[in-house]
Amino acid sequence: MPELGKLNRKEIAALVGVAPMNRESGSYKGKRRIRGGRHRIRTVMFMAMMSAIQCNPVFKRYYQHLKAAGKMPKVALIACMRKLIVILNTMLKSEELWCAKNG
């Protein structure tokens, strides 16, 4: 993703396809779902996050927090993916290395 580090957090999440999109028209109120974006990147990130919620303390804690708040497991996983892409984008933008306090 050559755009990583050049866009803001909303734009980068939409580019990857992990931003929630409304399905609303007139009086119809639908559920928010992820769609669009680059599906190959989203697929790789999904598998990486499956591992991260087991091994990385930052994402493990965030995932467990979301599940304790009543979120479905896949919704919590997608939220963690969005958090990861936002952290990576910020790290490249500010030229920082990963540390546990970033999460």
Rank of each mutant, 00 (worst) to 15 (best):
K101S: 13
W98D: 08
R82L: 11
V18F: 15
A69H: 06
C55H: 11
K29C: 00
A79H: 13
E11W: 00
L84T: 11
Y63E: 15
T43Y: 01
I87R: 13
I12W: 07
Y63Q: 11
K60R: 09
S94M: 10
L88T: 07
P57I: 09
V86P: 10
C55Q: 12
M45N: 03
I53A: 01
V75T: 15
N22V: 01
M1D: 14
Y63H: 12
I87W: 12
M45A: 07
K71L: 14
R9G: 01
L77C: 09
L92K: 08
N8D: 14
G17P: 15
R61I: 11
L66S: 09
G36V: 04
I53Y: 01
A52C: 00
T43K: 05
F59C: 07
I87F: 14
I41S: 05
R38W: 04
G36S: 05
R42D: 11
S94D: 07
E95Y: 01
E3Y: 03
A79Q: 12
V58I: 11
A19R: 12
L88S: 10
I53V: 12
A14G: 09
H39F: 05
C55I: 04
V86L: 13
E3T: 09
I53R: 02
Y62N: 06
F59Y: 14
K10E: 13
M21S: 11
P20M: 05
A76S: 12
P57L: 04
R38D: 15
S25V: 07
I78N: 04
A68T: 14
L15V: 10
Y62H: 10
I12E: 11
R42G: 09
A100H: 04
L15T: 13
T90M: 04
T43G: 02
A69D: 15
N22W: 01
V18T: 13
L7V: 05
C55K: 09
L84F: 15
P2V: 11
S51N: 10
K101Q: 07
A19C: 14
C55Y: 06
A48P: 00
P57R: 04
V58Y: 02
G26C: 06
M47S: 07
P2S: 13
T43H: 04
E24M: 06
R33M: 00
A79I: 14
T90N: 08
M47F: 04
L66I: 13
Q64N: 15
R82D: 10
A48M: 06
A76W: 05
Y62T: 12
A76N: 11
K10C: 08
N22Q: 12
L7Y: 03
M21K: 15
G103N: 08
E96L: 03
P57F: 05
E95F: 02
A14V: 09
N8M: 03
N22Y: 01
W98Y: 13
G30K: 00
E95H: 06
I87D: 13
N22T: 02
K74G: 03
I12C: 09
W98R: 02
V44E: 04
N89T: 08
K10P: 13
G30M: 00
V18P: 15
C55R: 10
S51C: 03
L97V: 00
K101G: 02
L84W: 14
A13Y: 10
Y62F: 15
K74E: 09
R61Y: 05
E11V: 08
M47W: 01
K93E: 03
R9C: 08
N8V: 07
P20F: 07
I87P: 04
